[in-house]
Design a protein around this nucleic acid. Structure first.
Length: 697
DNA sequence: GAGCCCATAAACATAA
DNA sequence: CTTATGTTTATGGGCT
C-alpha cells in the first residue's frame, strides 16, 4: 500500500557545494619548527653538559671497576681505550647499565652487585635531581634576564625576543623531557619507583617497552664510549628524538633498527628491568664460554640488523649500518663521509673482536626481547579480540572501563580490515582518542566484525545493529564515557522506535541520550545541537504536531532509503517487503532464518559467538536494557521473542506513513543469516545486525 | 579526486 | 527577554 509519494522531495543540496569548497582551506603550521631550529643550536645546551658529565662519569666508573677487577680478567681491556677523564660527578652517575654487563658480572658477585646498585641508585637519583633542578633554575634565570633585558627595547625587537624566549622555553622543555626520560630509564632499571608525572604522551606509551634510548644506552654501555664529543652528540640526539619536535634530521639519527618497533607495552612489563639485566648478564656470560659464530644465527633474523664484520654488503650502495652519513652500529654513530670511509670505519672499529661480538650478542638479545614482547603483545591482542568478538572467555564484564583510548583506536584499526582472529601488530598507540564514528565499536562483537567497508555499516546509520550493539553494551555505554559508534540519526531513530508510541519530543530524545550514554552527559550544547540538526536535516525524521506540542517520529521508508545500495543482500526480497505486506510471512521467514542461522552456527563456535550469540543475547539482555524506556511498547505484546517486526510499523500511529518499510532490512537479515552465516563472518555480521533489532522491539 | 555521509558550529527564526 | 525548539548554512574529515 501507499508509500513513496509525498515524501519524495529533493534533498537539501548544501552538502554538494560543501564537498567542493572544503578542499580549499588547508593550512599547516610548520612555523614552530622553523623558529626553534636556528635558535637553540649555537651553544652547548645544558643537556649536552649533562651528558658530558655522564659520559665522564661513565668512563671513570669503568676504570674504577676495571681497576678493581685487575687480575680477574683482562680481555675487556680494549674497552678502556678511551682517555681517562677526571669526573666531576660521582660514581653514582653511572648506572649499572652503563657498565658492560660482562664486566659487571665478572667483577662482582651478585650480592655485591646488588649492594652497589642500590647505593648508586640513591646517589644517582639524588644527583640527577639536583642537577636538573639547577639547570632548570639556570634556564629560568636566563629566561627572566632575557625578558627584562628585552623589556626596555622597542617593539621592533619583540619578535626576536619571542624567538629567544621560545628557544629558552624549548630548552626548558627539553630539559624536562630529558629529566623525565632519565627518570624513566632509572625506573625501568628498577632504580626509581617514581612515576614521571608530567609525561609527554608518546613517551608514556613507550616507557614500559624498550625504547630507542634504552637501547642506545645499552649499546653504548657495551660498546664503550667512542668519544666524549660523540657521546654528547649522541645523547643530544636522543633527547631531541624523544622530544616531540623531532626533525627529520634527528629522526634519521635514531638507530632505525630498533627504534621504530612499536611495542606498546602493557602496564606491567613482563620482564622487570632487573630480570632483564640478570638475563642479559647470564646470556652474556654464557656467550663468553661459547664460540661466537654460531650465535649470529638468530641475529640474522632481524633483517635490518644484519651487519657485523662481514663485508659482503659493503658494495651495495646502501649498507644497513650506514645511513645519513654516519655509522649505525649500535652506539657508534661515527661520521663517515662516504661509503668507503664507512667501510674503513666498519672494518677498523667494528671488526671481529670481543667487543663487536658482545655487541652483536646484545643486539640479539634486544631482538629476542622485542620478539618476545611482540609475541606477548600479539597474544594479548588476540585475547582482547577474542574477548570482544565472542563472549569473553574471562568473566570480566564488558562494560568494564576498558582503556577507552586504546580500545577505540584499536577498534578502528581492527575494523580497518583485519580478519577476525588475525593477530596484527599494534601499530601505534597514538590514535586519537575519539575518532567519532567508528570509535568504540570495539566493544561489541558487531563492530569488531566490521571488515573492510562493512565496518562502516555497522557503526553508521543504515542497519540497525544499533539495537544489538546497544543491547549488548548498554551497560557499558551507560557507564563509560565512550562515544557510541552510531550516528546521531541512528541513535535518534532508535530512541524514537523504542518509545511507547514511537514518537518522542525533542526533550525526550535528549533524555534518552543522556540516560543511555554517559558520553552524552556532557557537552550537551554540542550534541543537542547535533540532534536537532539531524532531526531537521534527515527526511526520515518527521515532526508531528501533537496536542501537547510536537513530537518526532521516524519515517522508516525514508530511513531505509538512506541505506547505501550496497545493502543488496537480496534485492528481490527487499522489494517484496518494501512493496508492503508480508508481515506475517516476513515474520515467519525471519524466525526461520534466525533459527536456521542459529542452528548453523551451533556448529561453528566462532560464528555462533559472533553473530547468533549476539542475537540470542539480544533476546534476553536486549529487552532489559531498553525496556526501561519501552515498557509500554511491550504492552502491545511485542515482548515475546518471536514477534516484532510488525510492531514497528503498527505502532507508529502518529505517522501517516506506514513504517512497514523496515521490512527491507529484514529480508536482508534473512538472506544474510542463511547464506552468510556459514561463510563470511564479516558479512553475516552486517545482516545479522538487523535481526536483533527487530527482535528488540 | 569527486561525491557522499556525517559531525560540528553557528546564525537565524519562532514559539513558549 | 530568555529559553527551547527548529531550520539552514558552512566547514571539515572520513570513506567509497
Amino acid at each position: 500500500m501507499m508509500v513513496e509519494s509525498a515524501t519524495e522531495t529533493i534533498r537539501t543540496t548544501p552538502s554538494n557545494q560543501n564537498g567542493v569548497s572544503s578542499l580549499s582551506s588547508q593550512s599547516d603550521g610548520g612555523g614552530r619548527e622553523g623558529g626553534s631550529n636556528g635558535d637553540t643550536n649555537g651553544e652547548i645546551s645544558p643537556v649536552d653538559l649533562l651528558h658530558l658529565q655522564q659520559q665522564q662519569a661513565l668512563q671513570a666508573a669503568r676504570q674504577f671497576i676495571l681497576q678493581q677487577a685487575t687480575g680477574l680478567n683482562s680481555p675487556s681491556s680494549n674497552e678502556i681505550k678511551q682517555s681517562t677523564v677526571q669526573v666531576p660527578v660521582s660514581m653514582a652517575m653511572m648506572t649499572p647499565q652503563m657498565i658492560t654487563p660482562q664486566q659487571m658480572q665478572q667483577i662482582l658477585s651478585p650480592p655485591q652487585l646488588q649492594a652497589l646498585l642500590q647505593q648508586q641508585q640513591a646517589l644517582m637519583l639524588q644527583q640527577l635531581q639536583e642537577y636538573y633542578k639547577k639547570q632548570q633554575e639556570q634556564l629560568h634565570l636566563q629566561l627572566l634576564a632575557q625578558q627584562q633585558q628585552q623589556a626596555g627595547k622597542q617593539a621592533k625587537e619583540q619578535q626576536q625576543l619571542g624567538n629567544k624566549q621560545l628557544a629558552f622555553q624549548q630548552q626548558l622543555i627539553q630539559m624536562q623531557q630529558l629529566q623525565q626520560q632519565h627518570l624513566l630509564n632509572l625506573q625501568r632499571q628498577g632504580l626509581v619507583n617514581i612515576q614521571p608525572s608530567q609525561g609527554a604522551v608518546p613517551i608514556q606509551s613507550l616507557q614500559q617497552a624498550m625504547c630507542p634510548t634504552d637501547l642506545q644506552q645499552l649499546w653504548k654501555d657495551v660498546a664503550g664510549i667512542q668519544s666524549t664529543e660523540e657521546a654528547m652528540k649522541h645523547e643530544g640526539l636522543d633527547l631531541t628524538t624523544n622530544s616531540s619536535n623531532s626533525t627529520s634530521y634527528t629522526a634519521s639519527k635514531v638507530s632505525p633498527q630498533i627504534s621504530h618497533h612499536p611495542l606498546p607495552n602493557g602496564h606491567n612489563s613482563v620482564h622487570t628491568p632487573k630480570r632483564d639485566r640478570a638475563r642479559l648478564f647470564e646470556w652474556i656470560s654464557s656467550f663468553t664460554k661459547e664460540s661466537s659464530d654460531d650465535h649470529l644465527t638468530p641475529y640474522s633474523k632481524s633483517a635490518p640488523l644484519q651487519s657485523t664484520h662481514s663485508t659482503h654488503e659493503e658494495h651495495t650502495a646502501s649498507h644497513p649500518l650506514y645511513g645519513h652519513g654516519e655509522c649505525k652500529w649500535p652506539g657508534c654513530e661515527a661520521l663517515c663521509e662516504d661509503m668507503g670511509q664507512f667501510i674503513k670505519h666498519l672494518n677498523s672499529e667494528h671488526a671481529l673482536d670481543d667487543r663487536s661480538t658482545a655487541q652483536c650478542r646484545v643486539q640479539m638479545q634486544v631482538v629476542q626481547q622485542l620478539e618476545i614482547q611482540l609475541s606477548k603483545e600479539s597474544e594479548r591482542l588476540q585475547a582482547m579480540m577474542a574477548h570482544l568478538h565472542m563472549r569473553p572467555s574471562e568473566p570480566k564484564p564488558f562494560h568494564q572501563p576498558l582503556n577507552l583510548a586504546s580500545s577505540m583506536s584499536m577498534s578502528k584499526r581492527e575494523s580497518e580490515g583485519f580478519p577476525e582472529g588475525l593477530p596484527h601488530p599494534p601499530t601505534s598507540a597514538a590514535t586519537p582518542i575519539t575518532p567519532m564514528r567508528q570509535g568504540p565499536s570495539v566493544i561489541s562483537s558487531s563492530s569488531l566484525h566490521g571488515v573492510g567497508h562493512m565496518r562502516r555499516r555497522n557503526s553508521d546509520k543504515f542497519c540497525t545493529p544499533i539495537a544489538s550493539e546497544l543491547a549488548q553494551n548498554c551497560e557499558f555505554y551507560k557507564n563509560a564515557d565512550v562515544r557510541p559508534p552510531f550516528t546521531y540519526a541512528s541513535l535518534i531513530r532508535h530512541a524514537i522506535l523504542e518509545a511507547p508510541d514511537r514518537q518522542l519530543t525533542l526533550n525526550e530524545i535528549y533524555n534518552w541520550f543522556t540516560r543511555m550514554f554517559a558520553y552524552f552527559r556532557r557537552n550537551t550544547a554540542t550534541w543537542k545541537n547535533a540532534v536537532r540538526h539531524n532531526l531537521s536535516l534527515h527526511k526520515c525524521f518527521v515532526r508531528v504536531e501533537n496536542v501537547k506540542g510536537a513530537v518526532w517520529t521516524v519515517d522508516e521508508v525514508e530511513y531505509q532509503k538512506r541505506r547505501p545500495p550496497k545493502m543488496t543482500g537480496s534485492p528481490t526480497l527487499v522489494k517484496n517487503m518494501i512493496s508492503g505486506l508480508g508481515f506475517g510471512s516476513l515474520n515467519a521467514s525471519y524466525q526461520a532464518a534466525l533459527a536456521e542461522s542459529t542452528l548453523g552456527l551451533l556448529n561453528s563456535p566462532t560464528l555462533m559467538n559472533n553473530s547468533t550469540g549476539a542475537s540470542l543475547n539480544m533476546l534476553h539482555i536486549g529487552h532489559d536494557d531498553v525496556s526501561s524506556t519501552v515498557e509500554q511498547v511491550n504492552s502491545n505484546g511485542s515482548c515475546s521473542p518471536g514477534l516484532s517486526p510488525q510492531q514497528y510499523g503498527h505502532q507508529i500511529h502518529v505517522k501517516e506513513e506506514p513504517a512497514e518499510m523496515e521490512e527491507d532490512s529484514r529480508p536482508m537479515s534473512l538472506m544474510a543469516s542463511v547464506t552468510q552465516n556459514m561463510s563470511m563472518p564479516g558479512d553475516e555480521r552486517d545482516m545479522e545486525e538487523e535481526l536483533p533489532t527487530e527482535e528488540l522491539e
